[in-house]
Design a protein around this nucleic acid. Structure first.
Lengths: 126, 126
DNA sequence: AAAATAATAGTAATTATTATTGTTTACAAA
DNA sequence: TTTGTAAACAATAATAATTACTATTATTTT
């Protein structure tokens, strides 16, 4: 049974208002403004829980620590190989790649995670 | 300048003969059979170097530690959500998703990483 | 309001990885 | 074939990211 907690609420709110996919550390530093003695463990525990509940998304990009996204609508991400930022990408549905993966595979495909990498506008201009 | 080392050779050979995408820890435990006092640091350093040289591939699946693949030919992976194993997938080229990502994005797309998740044959049978 | 229990803060422990240091090895040039 | 030097090594320490533990507090149930 899950009980409401103000700390978890605050973590979720924070993510809902950010578009830069912050790390657990960043969440911690910011939520601390409202809950000065929240512990990092609480942040990690709630990020995991919220992810499991499907209320946020965890991004494991393979570069640096995991990031979190308050936007759970289906979308993709761009990892800028220069500045390291993670940006939202507007891209049409590509779930057909699941079908492509299924043909020639003897099991079940449930979904996929895809990260695009490249250069963001900002970095291209420099 | 890169000098040959028997330890690195052994790590590469080990990966070339495995199809289960072992972790650094597994590489370490196995390479130790041939080099009993190889250190874990050496394993990590060489896995990084080989990855940078493009002689092996690093898989950051987001579930558990990074894994490594001696097969650098373009292919994709299936993460079994039941047993946790990582399998090779036969799938036709899907680089067109880079083009899809590019339309509506103001920067440059260099590539993508995709992991499929689902259930392997073995787990479906149980 | 009291009891039950989930969640917390604070802290310790673990896991995964990278860095440091002194020694050894590979390779090139004499 | 010795010798200089830079790369690679083993051993170990350090760091980063995350998870676990425990006593206390907050939330929900009775």
């Amino acid at each position: 049974m899950i009980k409401h907690s103000r700390q978890r609420e605050c973590i979720k709110d924070f993510l809902a208002n950010r578009y830069d996919h912050p790390t657990a550390e960043t969440v911690y530093l910011n939520v601390r403004k409202e809950f000065p003695n929240i512990s990092l463990g609480t942040v990690y525990r709630n990020l995991s829980l919220l992810t499991k509940l499907g209320e946020i998304r965890k991004l494991s990009t393979g570069i640096g620590p995991d990031r979190f996204d308050g936007n759970i609508s289906p979308h993709y991400h761009l990892l800028c190989t220069k500045c390291g930022n993670v940006l939202d990408l507007e891209i049409e549905n590509i779930d057909h790649i699941n079908t492509l993966a299924k043909s020639g595979f003897d099991g079940e495909i449930e979904g996929h995670v895809t990260y695009f990498f490249g250069k963001c506008r900002n970095c291209l201009e420099k």
